[in-house]
Structures are given as structure tokens and as C-alpha cells.
Simulated scan of single mutants.
Amino acid sequence: MESFLLFFETMPAWQKVVWVVSVLVVCWLFEGYYPLFKHAYKKWNHAKVNFIFLSITLVINIVFGIATVGIFNWIGENHVGLLNMVDWPIWVELIVAVMVLDLVAQYLIHYLLHRVKWMWKFHMIHHSDTKVDVTSGTRHHPGDYILRETFALGAIIVIGAPISYYLIYRFLTVFFTYVSHANVVTPKWLDKTLGLIFVTPNMHKFHHHFERPWTDTNFGNIFSLWDRMFGTYVMDDPKKIKYGLDVLDDSTDTNVIYQFKIPFDKNIKTDY
């Protein structure tokens, strides 16, 4: 187990990039053969828009990466956090760390992004995509992403997780983010079985429906447990889903400049 953790702790940056690209490519290929919706769009043109947001996210990620290393050093020197107060087996600590990180840095912040008006204005960019596919998982306004990373740092301090646990969590987050956004048909029996614990593609698609109440459900990223526990879980026929937002013009979803300005446009009204 220790060698497994050491592998993640000493992993070079290029291997992390390979993981991101690999998951994207595999999901992209599956979308071509087993699409849930046959979108009438040019896939590469759609991807270019979302990859612009991804490029900015990567820059922000570098900045937060430097801050994260400093926090891990501080945790190690001062023995801060839950895991420094207990003596559990490594595998138990790892599971607890991933679950707490997913709860705080994914479910909780995602819930707030939908409930707090100024946060929602940043998060609207993610929901404005009218052709949801694997690249939609990369579509986040810089303000949205900064909020997510800030909550992640807070969760790291609360749990007192070593950096290897955090990196494993990030790898899982990448996998579930891209898979859950992928435009793929998932067999009902498989989706239902995996959905008892994990977030599945069908489950997350309801979160991207263009109007409430479905828009405000299924906030989880790795575990579906949080939505089930807190009453935000929903499941229906995926074919009923329509992507986008009812307060935005669908034609603006590929206008990058317009999308960046949404959080600051007072003419765009929301119910929050």
C-alpha cells in the first residue's frame, strides 16, 4: 500500500497530463460509437470553446498547486487535521480522505454554486453548454474554478490528508468528471447498479437539464451517496433532458467573450 501511495506522490507532471488526455480520448471515442444524444454540431468546434476554458483552468491549477504544496508542508509540520488525530489503517484513511474531499470540495461547493446568486452567475457558464459531451467537463469560468479550488484547500486542512491521498482523489475526480459528462448511452442495469454508490453519466445529465427542478439536483462528482443523503438525488428517463439554461439564448453557448462576461452582466436575471 505504501508503494502505491509513493507512486502517486512521486509521479511526474507528464504522467498526470497523460491521465487527463487518456480519459478525454477514451470518452470521446465512446461518444462516437454509443451516443446518448445525436447532437447536430461540429464536435471539434464545440471542443475548441470548452478547451479555451480548460487552458485558463490549467493556469489557475498551477497557482493553486504551489499553494497546495505549502499547505501540505504546514499540515505535516503541525499535525493538523482529522487524520493526524487517529491511528487508522492506511486504506481506511484513504477512503475517508477521498470521501471528505468529495463531500466538501465537490458536493458542498457545487450546492452553493447553485444557491448563492453571485456564485451561480459564475457557474452558469458550465450549464450554458447546449451540447453536453466529455469536453463539457472542462468548461468552467475562472471564478467558478477558483471557488472550487479554495474549498479543496479547506477540505485538505480539515482532513489533514497527505499529498498522496489528495493526488489519488484528483485522479478520481478527473475520471468521474469526464465520464459523467460524456455523451454515451449507459445500460440501465449498469447505471442503476453503479449509481447506488457512484455518480453515473445518466445521473449527472439531469443536472444539466435547462430548467429547475432538475438543474438543482445531483451535485455529486464521485459519490452519489451525498445526493441520496441530502435529498438532492433525482433519476428519470434521460431522453427527457434538454441541455442549456432557460435564462440564456442557446446561440450564445459558443460565444466565448459573451460567456466570460455572464457573471458581470446585470441584464441576465436569475431566480436566486
Rank of each mutant, 00 (worst) to 15 (best):
V59I: 15
D236T: 04
S55A: 13
V26C: 07
A13I: 08
I66G: 01
T10R: 11
D191Y: 12
M203G: 02
Q15A: 10
P35G: 03
I60Q: 15
I197H: 10
L167R: 08
G32R: 10
G154L: 09
K188D: 15
F219Q: 02
P142K: 03
H204E: 00
F171V: 03
M11F: 05
F72R: 03
H79Q: 15
I95N: 06
L112V: 04
A155W: 03
F176V: 00
D87F: 09
D246Y: 08
S55V: 02
P238M: 08
T130Y: 03
F264M: 10
L103V: 00
V20Y: 14
K48N: 13
Y107S: 07
T200A: 06
W44I: 10
M11W: 04
K240G: 11
E149I: 05
K239T: 10
D102S: 02
Y272I: 15
Q259L: 15
N50Y: 05
K42T: 13
V98W: 02
L54H: 05
D87V: 10
E9V: 08
A182I: 09
K43V: 13
W91D: 08
S251R: 04
F171A: 08
V21N: 07
N84I: 12
M85I: 06
L83P: 01
W44K: 02
K121G: 01
F264S: 06
S22N: 07
G160Y: 01
W118V: 12
P89Y: 08
F198A: 00
Y34T: 05
D87C: 05
V17A: 15
W14G: 08
V18T: 10
G32I: 03
I52M: 11
Y169T: 00
H110L: 05
V17D: 12
T135V: 11
F4V: 07
W88F: 12
D216E: 13
M203E: 09
I168W: 00
V20Q: 14
S22E: 08
V80K: 02
I146K: 01
V21Y: 08
D216K: 06
T173N: 12
M235R: 08
F264L: 09
I62W: 15
E9C: 06
D227M: 02
P162V: 09
V20A: 11
F223H: 00
W74C: 06
S224N: 14
Y169L: 01
V185Q: 14
L108E: 02
V59A: 15
P238N: 07
P162D: 15
K266E: 14
L167F: 11
L29M: 12
L153R: 12
W226F: 15
V256G: 02
I95F: 12
I75S: 06
I222C: 14
F4L: 13
D236W: 12
K131R: 13
E2R: 11
K266Q: 12
E9N: 15
M99F: 10
V256R: 04
T177C: 06
T173M: 09
E93I: 02
H126E: 11
V20P: 01
L58T: 06
V17S: 12
W19S: 00
W226Q: 07
I125M: 07
Y233H: 13
V184W: 04
L112R: 03
L82I: 14
N78Q: 10
D271L: 10
K239V: 07
N78P: 05
F176T: 00
H141F: 06
T232A: 03
